[in-house]
Write a protein that binds this DNA or RNA. Structure first.
Lengths: 100, 100
DNA sequence: CATTCATATGAACGTTGGTTTATGTTGTCT
DNA sequence: AGACAACATAAACCAACGTTCATATGAATG
């Protein structure tokens, strides 16, 4: 019931990542765009469940989609992908880097 | 009910931060150790509720406590505090930086 | 030692959120 | 057009989580 006019708080974006499946999706997409079927195989998640989580990522603006025939290709949103070198994602409010 | 022998997953640590109150506590503690009473005033959170959230942060190992008379002082755990300059926290599995 | 201050704990409640099952939609191929 | 493949959506269920209220603990002070 979040008002679409008010900007998403940092907490809400963290909530999106605070799920095993969604975090795995994001980390997997850091390697490049991927089709849903590939994500299913790599993450061992049921189709419907994965689709639900992808919807959350979409609505949070963390990922974008593109059709490729029957398949749908998911990729990290442009603003999310940060510096070329690091394994990091940009949430706008904060940055997450996975390189210790 | 997490088995204490197995290491905490990155997701679990993110879950801890994915709450408005707890994130506010951590951000507030980045400025230095603080007593519970001070956190109550600054964050406008009821005593009991704050205490519950502090417990979650404690059990996650993100904060440490120290007695100061009747009061209890909370501070970020040593490994959490990262580089001197940046407003960043280290979760072990990943780093969160709040400087765009 | 009784009281008060500062914080923690326990239980009960309501809501959110992840999972499952079933069905719908969109595209492709023959 | 029919059939299949790839993915999305809807509804229902259950568990986890945040919140509240009541009570307990521990330290200090008279």
């Amino acid at each position: 019931m979040a008002n679409s006019t008010e900007p998403t708080a940092c907490v809400d974006r963290l909530k999106v990542l605070a799920d095993a499946t969604r975090l795995a999706v994001v980390e997997s997409l850091m390697a490049g765009p991927q089709r849903v079927g590939v994500l299913m195989d790599r993450l061992h998640v049921e189709q419907s469940l994965l689709s639900h989580h992808l919807k959350v990522l979409r609505e949070a603006g963390l990922v974008d989609t593109e059709r490729d025939g029957k398949a749908v290709v998911y990729r990290l949103a442009d603003y999310v992908k940060t510096d070329s070198a690091g394994q990091a994602i940009n949430l706008g409010c904060c940055r997450l880097s996975f390189t210790p």
